[in-house]
């Protein structure tokens, strides 16, 4: 089947097998290997990307279902050479160790902050509760997201 998917603001048209998973489409067809695969069962969230600005587990979605939609992956977080505050927060607060869950965690964090710019600790924990991290015990991920919240310049703030 032919599909056209906009990934990180760039449209891609490809012929794909109908059963191809979105995660494999992104990784193997487009070479965007920042999106990881971890479990098959939608439990771990290593594969989280945003579809039309909503976090989705890309191992549980077929590539053809993304036809006509906008996908954002970790590679799309940095804009014009400027890191997203979430990316900076993960570095500042040691929010990652092995780095495998990090792209998915950051994309969920971005969604959270877009919808709730000042989340408290429990809201952050709930937002990432569909994703697993085996290294950090989550503490520094929570701090990283808080850091991003505190260092996001909204138009109101900068005005």
């Amino acid at each position: 089947m032919q599909i056209t998917v906009t990934v990180n603001d760039q449209p891609y048209t490809r012929e794909v097998e109908p059963r191809l998973l979105l995660v494999h489409f992104l990784r193997d067809e487009l070479g965007l290997t920042g999106t990881h695969w971890g479990c098959d069962t939608s439990n771990c969230g290593a594969c989280v990307v945003q579809i039309d600005a909503v976090p989705v587990k890309s191992c549980t979605m077929l590539a053809v279902m993304a036809d006509g939609h906008h996908v954002t992956t970790v590679e799309g977080l940095e804009k014009n050479g400027e890191l997203d505050p979430v990316q900076k927060g993960f570095t500042e607060c040691h929010g990652l160790q092995c780095g495998f869950c990090t792209p998915g965690m950051m994309l969920t964090a971005r969604w959270l902050l877009d919808n709730n710019p000042d989340p408290d600790e429990s809201e952050i924990r709930e937002a990432i509760s569909g994703q697993l991290c085996r290294c950090t015990g989550y503490e520094n991920i929570v701090r990283s997201v808080r850091w991003a919240a505190e260092h996001t310049c909204t138009p109101e703030v900068s005005a």
């Binding site: 990784r27 965007l32 920042g34 695969w37 890191l83 570095t91 990652l96 495998f100 990090t102």
Partner: peptide, 30 residues
């Protein structure tokens, strides 16, 4: 958490983070 690089021991940001936060790590399946 920390802003300067110590000339030895102390808190400093991880060097490896630069690639991981950009999705540029290279795991075997990559």
């Amino acid at each position: 958490m920390t802003t300067s690089t110590p000339m030895g021991f102390g808190r400093m940001h991880r060097k490896e983070d630069a690639r991981f936060i950009r999705g540029r790590g290279q795991y075997v399946d990559d």
